[in-house]
Design a protein around this nucleic acid. Structure first.
Lengths: 224, 224
DNA sequence: AAAAACGAGTGTATAATCAACACTTGCTAC
DNA sequence: GTAGCAAGTGTTGATTATACACTCGTTTTT
């Protein structure tokens, strides 16, 4: 196969920007690295792509290694391929963002990796080009969220409208009017009242809603 | 550097989705391959990433090899990393789209590569996963075009409003109302009349306009 | 047991934006 | 001089977006 063997080969990695929704803020799951390179600094969770594994699969594997979660919504952010982006060796990395429900992950696993949550606007500096990855992931995630109902991956299956509103406010980075917001939800067929009441966040209790994937697929309508 | 050397290495390629605007249609510059693998079939222009070259630089180099053009607007579409995406060897490819003014490229170079233009909706089947690359590039390009003034890269510096309208129609895939369109242009400070008249497309002649990058940077306003 | 605290829930009026629509102009070619 | 052709030009009605303040139901406090 001399056509191929004439060309160089590269280390290929994946890095995961793991978003969660915590204390009404978009948050990020980061590693405090207790290993080289860049031991002691903060980074995204990453790993090398294996021989017989697609790049997408590598990202899913790495996410599972850290959180224990499978079947998670992920999107590719892009390939990062500058020559000196890692100091010691050339590594090309493909970044992915993941949206997880912060109630669901495996806490022991996360602790054993020395990982921790930070609010997105309080994140520390990260190693290599991970800051750039996070910025691009945020832009891409916000863009997707304004067109497709991906935000529900950040919430439990059932949620109150107040929680959904504060999530939208966190994603779009601006306050929203409560009455206008609820008017829009009322016109969105794929968000339906479940009947139960949540009393954990208020004395009066708030109706619980859920996102109905099937209704969305039929109507294709979603705009919050 | 045993941390790194324990991990496999991969061939890394780039592929270019080269868009142009021809006969009022978005078009694509493709290769009729006179070389292996997949000789005789149609593909995107691509190439392998070199040792001391960033992935972005590889894409720019490959574009220049085919068209002779430099300083071209390009955006990364994403990394394509399925295990069997090329039949003979594993290659991970990063796709980029480029927007070029179809009057500008080096015709001899293009012919020597056996390359040709096709309208986007008349494109033949392409090898490997290049069809998927083109579809994703189109989605991304359309999304960008609806937010940022990238469409001007597809036009000569000076253009008539009729050309600009037919370009928008081609990008968004729908007819636009002439009066509404021109009203919007009139409210877009970064599109300015140049004074000259183009008589090549109509007997009466049409005013020429140009996009003013500086005005756009100041106002940040663009919406067509 | 009354009152205070707290988030849940609810409509209307105005402003802004979008969408639909048809004729006249200026030049050229016959 | 007239037929042909793309360029150019405003108004109206419909839809959508925005601004805004009080009552409800439950719990906690005094």
């Amino acid at each position: 196969m001399s056509y191929y063997s004439a060309h160089p080969r590269f280390h290929l990695a994946v890095d995961c920007i793991i978003f969660g929704f915590r204390d009404d803020k978009i948050s990020l799951l980061l590693l405090k690295r207790d290993f080289e390179p860049a031991k002691g600094e903060c980074s995204l969770m990453g790993g090398f792509v294996r021989e017989n594994e697609s790049v997408d699969d590598a990202a899913r594997r790495v996410l599972t290694e850290l959180t224990g979660l499978t079947d998670i919504y992920m999107e590719q952010v892009g390939a990062f391929g500058k020559v000196g982006r890692e100091p010691d060796e050339r590594v090309v990395s493909v970044a992915y963002y993941a949206l997880i429900n912060i109630d669901d992950y495996d806490h022991e696993l996360v602790e054993s990796h020395n990982a921790f949550w930070v609010a997105i606007d309080e994140r520390p500096d990260l190693i290599f080009d991970h800051d750039e990855m996070v910025s691009k992931a945020l832009v891409k995630m916000r863009g997707m969220a304004s067109e497709y109902p991906i935000m529900f991956h950040l919430l439990p299956k059932e949620f109150t409208l107040s929680k959904l509103q504060s999530l939208c406010e966190a994603i779009y980075g601006m306050p929203l009017d409560k009455r206008n917001f609820r008017k829009q939800v009322a016109h969105t067929a794929c968000i339906e009242k479940v009947g139960a009441i949540d009393k954990s966040e208020s004395k009066r209790g708030a109706a619980l809603y859920r996102f109905n994937e099937n209704v969305f697929r039929k109507t294709g309508i979603f705009k919050l």
